[in-house]
C-alpha cells in the first residue's frame, strides 16, 4: 500500500462537483507535482485532503499511513502528519507569528503525550529555522501574515512546515507572488526537509520554474477534476513549450 493514496474521489461544494473520480498514489520519499489550468480543482484537492469543511466528499477514499482520513477532523489529519502550505494564508490580527507557532508546536506535543515545550527550547528551535529562511525577529513578533508581502507569507508557511516537520506536505502554489530570490530561499527550505526521503511532497504549481528548484519524481496534469496525464519532470518542460491545451488535446 502507498504512503498516501486517493481512490476514485468525487468531491466538491454543496452544489458543484469539482473532483470527479480523482486517483493519485504517492510513496514515501517522492515529490509529485500537479499542474493544470485555472479552475480545474487543484486548490480544491489540497483543501479536501486537509479536511476543509467548505467541501464535501461524495464518494471515494483518502488513505494516509494505512488510514482512511476522509472522516477525520482537520487537526487530527495534521497530527497524523499532513501539512498544507496555503496559496493565500489568512491574516490574523492579534496573534503574533511566534505565538501562533507556539500554539501549533504545543498542540503537536499534546497529541504526542508530551509536556508543553520550555520557552528556551522553543526559541532556539524557531531561531535556527527562521534564520535559514531569512525571517527576522521583528517579523516573528508581527501579527500573523498581516500586511506581509507574498514572499514573506510563503516564508512563514515554510517556517511552519520546518518547525512541525510533517510527513506529507502539500504546497499550494508556493511560487505565486515570489521573486526569484525568495523562491530560492523557500525551495531550499523544502529541499532540506525532502533530503532524507522520509517524507512525501505534493507541489501544486503553474510553472516549470519551481520544478527546476525542487526536482519532482512525477508530474501530473490535471483537467476537469482529474489527472489526465502523468510523466516525469520532462512533462513540465513539454508543458512550457506546448501549453495546457497542447498537452491535454495532444
Amino acid at each position: 500500500m502507498s504512503f498516501f493514496e486517493i481512490k476514485d474521489l468525487v468531491a466538491g461544494t454543496e452544489d458543484k462537483t469539482i473532483l470527479s473520480g480523482f486517483n493519485l498514489s504517492i510513496n514515501k520519499g517522492e515529490v509529485h507535482a500537479i499542474m493544470g489550468p485555472n479552475g480545474t480543482g487543484k486548490s480544491t484537492l489540497a483543501n479536501i485532503i486537509c479536511g476543509n469543511p467548505k467541501y464535501k466528499i461524495t464518494s471515494g477514499k483518502i488513505i494516509f499511513k494505512d488510514k482512511d482520513i476522509s472522516t477525520l477532523s482537520v487537526d487530527e489529519r495534521a497530527h497524523l502528519g499532513l501539512f498544507l502550505g496555503f496559496q493565500n494564508p489568512v491574516e490574523i490580527e492579534g496573534i503574533s507569528v511566534i505565538t501562533f507557532l507556539k500554539y501549533a508546536v504545543n498542540a503537536k506535543r499534546k497529541f504526542e503525550g508530551k509536556d508543553k515545550i520550555a520557552a528556551p527550547d522553543f526559541l532556539k528551535m524557531i531561531k535556527v529555522r527562521a534564520t535559514a529562511l531569512g525571517i527576522s525577529d521583528e517579523m516573528l513578533k508581527r501579527p500573523l501574515n498581516v500586511g506581509f508581502s507574498g514572499g514573506e507569507k510563503k516564508r512563514i508557511e515554510t517556517l511552519q512546515m520546518a518547525v512541525l516537520e510533517p510527513d506529507f506536505c502539500i504546497l499550494d502554489e508556493m511560487d505565486s507572488g515570489l521573486d526569484i530570490d525568495a523562491l530560492k530561499v523557500v525551495s531550499d527550505g523544502v529541499n532540506v526537509l525532502a533530503k532524507d526521503k522520509t517524507r512525501a511532497f505534493l507541489l501544486i504549481t503553474h510553472y516549470d520554474r519551481l520544478l527546476t528548484l525542487i526536482k519532482p519524481d512525477f508530474v501530473h496534469i490535471m483537467n476537469g477534476g482529474k489527472i489526465v496525464k502523468t510523466g516525469d519532470e520532462n512533462l513540465a518542460k513539454e508543458l512550457e513549450a506546448k501549453g495546457y491545451q497542447g498537452i491535454i488535446n495532444g
Binding site: 486537509c50 469543511p53 482537520v74 487537526d75 495534521a78 489568512v90 501549533a104 498542540a107 512541525l164
Partner: peptide, 17 residues
C-alpha cells in the same frame, strides 16, 4: 472567520482552542 479556523486547525490546533 471560517477560513481562519481552518488555517489554525490545519496546524493541529483543535477547533475549541
Amino acid at each position: 472567520d471560517e477560513s481562519a479556523l481552518f488555517y489554525m486547525e490545519s496546524r493541529g490546533i483543535s477547533k475549541p482552542e
